[in-house]
Computed example of a mutant assay.
Amino acid sequence: MLRVLVADDQDLFRGGFAMILDSNDDITVVGEAANGAEAVAKAVELKPDLVLMDIRMPGMDGVQATAEVCRRTEARVLVLTMYDVDEYVYDALRAGASGFLLKDVRRDDLVRAVRLVAEGQSLLAPAITRRLIAEFVGRGRGRPRLRQRLGTLTDREMATLRLLGRGRSNSEIAADLVVTEHTVKTHVSNLLTKLGLRDRAQAVVFAYESGLIVPGED
Protein backbone atom coordinates (compact mmCIF):
# COMPACT_ATOMS: atom_id res chain seq x y z
CA MET A 1 0.00 0.00 0.00
CA LEU A 2 1.36 3.40 -1.03
CA ARG A 3 1.23 5.86 1.89
CA VAL A 4 0.76 9.53 0.97
CA LEU A 5 0.76 12.77 2.95
CA VAL A 6 -1.02 15.74 1.33
CA ALA A 7 0.22 19.24 2.20
CA ASP A 8 -1.67 22.32 0.96
CA ASP A 9 -2.82 25.46 2.76
CA GLN A 10 -6.08 25.57 0.79
CA ASP A 11 -8.71 23.26 2.24
CA LEU A 12 -10.43 22.73 -1.11
CA PHE A 13 -7.30 21.54 -2.89
CA ARG A 14 -6.04 19.52 0.06
CA GLY A 15 -9.32 17.74 0.60
CA GLY A 16 -9.84 17.16 -3.12
CA PHE A 17 -6.43 15.64 -3.69
CA ALA A 18 -6.79 13.47 -0.60
CA MET A 19 -10.19 12.21 -1.71
CA ILE A 20 -8.96 11.37 -5.22
CA LEU A 21 -5.92 9.49 -3.97
CA ASP A 22 -7.74 7.68 -1.17
CA SER A 23 -10.27 6.29 -3.63
CA ASN A 24 -7.60 4.00 -5.11
CA ASP A 25 -7.13 0.52 -3.63
CA ASP A 26 -3.33 0.77 -3.66
CA ILE A 27 -3.08 4.27 -2.13
CA THR A 28 -3.92 5.49 1.35
CA VAL A 29 -3.70 9.08 2.55
CA VAL A 30 -2.12 8.83 6.00
CA GLY A 31 -2.41 12.51 6.83
CA GLU A 32 -2.94 16.09 5.73
CA ALA A 33 -1.00 19.27 6.50
CA ALA A 34 -1.98 22.91 6.10
CA ASN A 35 1.53 24.40 6.02
CA GLY A 36 5.16 23.47 5.56
CA ALA A 37 6.06 23.08 9.22
CA GLU A 38 3.11 20.75 9.74
CA ALA A 39 4.08 18.79 6.63
CA VAL A 40 7.59 18.20 7.98
CA ALA A 41 6.32 17.19 11.41
CA LYS A 42 3.78 14.77 10.00
CA ALA A 43 6.25 13.32 7.49
CA VAL A 44 8.62 12.53 10.35
CA GLU A 45 5.79 11.11 12.47
CA LEU A 46 3.79 9.19 9.86
CA LYS A 47 6.64 8.09 7.55
CA PRO A 48 4.73 8.31 4.26
CA ASP A 49 6.20 6.99 1.02
CA LEU A 50 5.39 10.26 -0.74
CA VAL A 51 4.47 13.82 0.17
CA LEU A 52 2.27 15.76 -2.25
CA MET A 53 3.53 19.25 -1.43
CA ASP A 54 1.99 22.59 -2.32
CA ILE A 55 4.86 24.92 -3.14
CA ARG A 56 3.36 28.21 -1.97
CA MET A 57 2.29 28.12 1.66
CA PRO A 58 2.51 30.69 4.46
CA GLY A 59 5.30 30.45 7.02
CA MET A 60 7.51 27.58 5.96
CA ASP A 61 6.85 27.26 2.23
CA GLY A 62 7.00 24.12 0.13
CA VAL A 63 10.65 24.63 -0.79
CA GLN A 64 11.84 24.72 2.82
CA ALA A 65 9.51 21.88 3.73
CA THR A 66 10.77 19.78 0.82
CA ALA A 67 14.37 20.22 1.92
CA GLU A 68 13.51 19.20 5.48
CA VAL A 69 11.40 16.22 4.43
CA CYS A 70 14.16 14.96 2.13
CA ARG A 71 16.78 15.49 4.83
CA ARG A 72 14.86 13.88 7.67
CA THR A 73 12.86 11.11 6.00
CA GLU A 74 12.96 8.64 3.12
CA ALA A 75 9.77 10.08 1.60
CA ARG A 76 9.78 11.31 -1.97
CA VAL A 77 8.26 14.71 -2.68
CA LEU A 78 6.01 15.69 -5.57
CA VAL A 79 5.40 19.43 -5.61
CA LEU A 80 2.29 21.26 -6.76
CA THR A 81 2.17 24.68 -8.39
CA MET A 82 -0.34 26.93 -10.12
CA TYR A 83 2.18 27.86 -12.79
CA ASP A 84 4.22 25.77 -15.22
CA VAL A 85 7.22 28.09 -14.88
CA ASP A 86 7.67 29.03 -11.26
CA GLU A 87 10.96 29.96 -9.61
CA TYR A 88 9.85 28.10 -6.51
CA VAL A 89 9.57 24.88 -8.50
CA TYR A 90 13.23 25.08 -9.53
CA ASP A 91 14.21 25.69 -5.91
CA ALA A 92 12.11 22.71 -4.83
CA LEU A 93 13.86 20.46 -7.34
CA ARG A 94 17.20 21.57 -5.97
CA ALA A 95 15.89 20.88 -2.46
CA GLY A 96 15.19 17.26 -3.39
CA ALA A 97 11.73 17.12 -4.97
CA SER A 98 11.29 14.38 -7.55
CA GLY A 99 9.07 16.38 -9.86
CA PHE A 100 6.11 18.71 -10.07
CA LEU A 101 2.51 18.93 -11.19
CA LEU A 102 0.21 21.78 -12.03
CA LYS A 103 -2.74 22.12 -9.67
CA ASP A 104 -5.17 21.78 -12.54
CA VAL A 105 -3.89 18.25 -13.17
CA ARG A 106 -6.51 15.74 -14.28
CA ARG A 107 -7.63 13.11 -11.79
CA ASP A 108 -6.05 10.14 -13.60
CA ASP A 109 -2.80 12.03 -14.21
CA LEU A 110 -2.53 12.87 -10.50
CA VAL A 111 -2.85 9.23 -9.50
CA ARG A 112 -0.41 8.13 -12.21
CA ALA A 113 2.12 10.77 -11.15
CA VAL A 114 1.98 9.77 -7.50
CA ARG A 115 2.55 6.13 -8.39
CA LEU A 116 5.45 6.91 -10.73
CA VAL A 117 7.29 9.12 -8.26
CA ALA A 118 6.73 6.68 -5.40
CA GLU A 119 8.31 3.97 -7.56
CA GLY A 120 11.47 6.04 -7.85
CA GLN A 121 10.92 7.81 -11.15
CA SER A 122 11.00 11.55 -11.67
CA LEU A 123 8.17 13.55 -13.16
CA LEU A 124 9.54 16.30 -15.37
CA ALA A 125 7.77 16.94 -18.65
CA PRO A 126 10.59 17.68 -21.14
CA ALA A 127 9.04 20.86 -22.59
CA ILE A 128 8.32 22.38 -19.19
CA THR A 129 11.67 21.26 -17.84
CA ARG A 130 13.60 23.02 -20.60
CA ARG A 131 11.75 26.30 -20.00
CA LEU A 132 12.06 26.01 -16.25
CA ILE A 133 15.77 25.26 -16.24
CA ALA A 134 16.60 27.79 -18.95
CA GLU A 135 14.85 30.49 -16.94
CA PHE A 136 16.44 29.89 -13.57
CA VAL A 137 19.55 27.75 -13.89
CA GLY A 138 21.88 30.60 -14.78
CA ARG A 139 22.45 31.47 -11.16
CA GLY A 140 24.48 28.30 -10.57
CA ARG A 141 25.71 27.18 -13.96
CA GLY A 142 29.30 26.18 -14.41
CA ARG A 143 30.45 26.23 -10.81
CA PRO A 144 33.96 24.66 -10.64
CA ARG A 145 32.99 22.30 -7.83
CA LEU A 146 30.19 20.81 -9.91
CA ARG A 147 32.41 20.46 -12.96
CA GLN A 148 34.97 18.59 -10.88
CA ARG A 149 32.30 16.08 -9.94
CA LEU A 150 31.58 15.51 -13.63
CA GLY A 151 35.14 14.21 -13.90
CA THR A 152 34.17 11.11 -11.92
CA LEU A 153 31.88 9.90 -14.73
CA THR A 154 32.79 7.60 -17.60
CA ASP A 155 32.13 8.76 -21.15
CA ARG A 156 28.96 6.65 -21.32
CA GLU A 157 27.70 7.99 -17.99
CA MET A 158 28.39 11.53 -19.17
CA ALA A 159 26.43 10.91 -22.37
CA THR A 160 23.59 9.43 -20.33
CA LEU A 161 23.51 12.46 -18.03
CA ARG A 162 23.46 14.81 -21.02
CA LEU A 163 20.44 13.00 -22.46
CA LEU A 164 18.73 12.88 -19.07
CA GLY A 165 19.12 16.62 -18.86
CA ARG A 166 17.34 16.98 -22.17
CA GLY A 167 14.37 15.08 -20.84
CA ARG A 168 14.95 11.76 -22.58
CA SER A 169 13.31 8.58 -21.26
CA ASN A 170 15.28 5.36 -20.72
CA SER A 171 14.05 3.94 -24.01
CA GLU A 172 15.04 7.10 -25.90
CA ILE A 173 18.47 7.13 -24.27
CA ALA A 174 18.93 3.48 -25.17
CA ALA A 175 18.10 4.23 -28.80
CA ASP A 176 20.45 7.23 -28.91
CA LEU A 177 23.36 5.31 -27.37
CA VAL A 178 22.53 2.03 -29.14
CA VAL A 179 22.42 0.05 -25.89
CA THR A 180 19.74 -1.83 -23.95
CA GLU A 181 17.41 -0.16 -21.46
CA HIS A 182 18.99 -2.31 -18.75
CA THR A 183 22.37 -0.78 -19.59
CA VAL A 184 20.85 2.71 -19.41
CA LYS A 185 19.41 1.95 -15.97
CA THR A 186 22.86 0.83 -14.85
CA HIS A 187 24.45 4.04 -16.17
CA VAL A 188 21.79 6.15 -14.43
CA SER A 189 22.26 4.32 -11.15
CA ASN A 190 26.04 4.70 -11.34
CA LEU A 191 26.01 8.39 -12.17
CA LEU A 192 23.52 9.16 -9.41
CA THR A 193 25.77 7.38 -6.92
CA LYS A 194 28.95 9.06 -8.13
CA LEU A 195 27.40 12.54 -8.13
CA GLY A 196 25.60 12.05 -4.83
CA LEU A 197 22.20 12.77 -6.35
CA ARG A 198 18.82 11.57 -5.10
CA ASP A 199 17.11 10.81 -8.40
CA ARG A 200 16.69 11.71 -12.08
CA ALA A 201 15.13 15.07 -11.26
CA GLN A 202 18.26 16.09 -9.39
CA ALA A 203 20.34 14.81 -12.30
CA VAL A 204 18.51 17.15 -14.68
CA VAL A 205 19.25 20.13 -12.46
CA PHE A 206 22.88 19.06 -12.05
CA ALA A 207 23.34 18.72 -15.81
CA TYR A 208 22.44 22.36 -16.29
CA GLU A 209 24.05 23.78 -13.16
CA SER A 210 27.36 22.14 -13.96
CA GLY A 211 27.36 23.59 -17.46
CA LEU A 212 27.16 20.17 -19.11
CA ILE A 213 24.08 21.49 -20.94
CA VAL A 214 23.60 25.10 -21.88
CA PRO A 215 20.01 26.45 -21.84
CA GLY A 216 18.69 26.71 -25.38
CA GLU A 217 21.19 24.18 -26.68
CA ASP A 218 19.67 21.35 -28.71
Rank of each mutant, 00 (worst) to 15 (best):
A97D: 06
T183F: 13
F17E: 01
L132M: 12
L163D: 05
D155G: 13
I27Q: 04
E157P: 06
Q202S: 14
R145Q: 14
V105F: 07
L102I: 14
L12S: 15
K185P: 04
R200D: 13
T81K: 05
A39F: 00
R76P: 06
A75M: 02
D108C: 10
G211E: 08
V30G: 03
V30P: 04
R56L: 14
V79A: 07
G140N: 15
L212R: 01
I173R: 03
L110R: 06
T81F: 00
V6T: 02
N35M: 11
E157M: 01
G59M: 08
I173C: 02
A18V: 04
V4M: 00
A75I: 02
L101S: 07
V69Q: 00
V178P: 11
H182W: 11
L146R: 11
M53E: 06
E209H: 12
A203H: 02
L161I: 06
G142L: 06
R71I: 11
L150Q: 06
G142D: 10
D86M: 10
D84S: 15
V69F: 04
G96E: 04
L161R: 01
E217L: 14
G96T: 00
V114Y: 00
G59P: 04
H187S: 03
L197I: 08
E38Y: 09
V79Q: 01
L93G: 02
